[in-house]
Amino acid sequence: MNGRLAERVFHGRRAASSALIVCGALLLIVSATSVARGAIARGAARARWAEIEAERAVAGAKLSTGGARWSEARGTPVARLTIPRLRVDEVVVEGVGDAELKAGPGHMIGSALPGDSGTSVISAHRDRHFHPLAGIAIGDTVVTESAHGTVVWKVTRMRVVKAEDSGLDARATPTLMLTTCWPIRYLGPAPERLIVEAVPK
């Protein structure tokens, strides 16, 4: 009798351990799929940006970019962002929704495009495209290419605000704000936001 009970317990534990392994594998598959989809979307955004640049070169004309028109085209590449020291080179897409942030940093709808007068807000995931922002420092150079041309920015201010606090100000002068969740090297919910401000050099 004891032998049968022990056998049942043994089989039960074995099944439980198998179930744990299967569940863990499923979770890994889910996260890997998400990362893979993000990589595919990023590649598509880069390809689209290259296509746009080629079309611009052929047309020899700048994009006419009214804010309203761009705001309708979510997911469309609108700029390229480079931080040479941190080896960041990303294509910025329109919108900061889940789908857009998978493809790359997102340009916040309603804010100015980089190079236009006003505040331009670009946000990205802390564990993906803006992970290198953990090492950014005041004085770093940021380069943006958009319909308004190429602009070289200089980081002038960095601040961490609470998630529920208002941190983005509308300014009349060209200002670039890069935002991501803070702390950057942290797993779990993000209680704060990192805002990096830059002005044209």
């Binding site: 863990g24 499923l26 979770l27 946000s123 990205a124 802390r126 935002t179």
Partner: peptide, 23 residues
Amino acid sequence: PEFRNGARAPNTATPIPMIALAG
């Protein structure tokens, strides 16, 4: 979220690292 004066920075934290770690 759309930009306006005093807007909050968007939530850019994903649960993916947590999910992978749990796995």
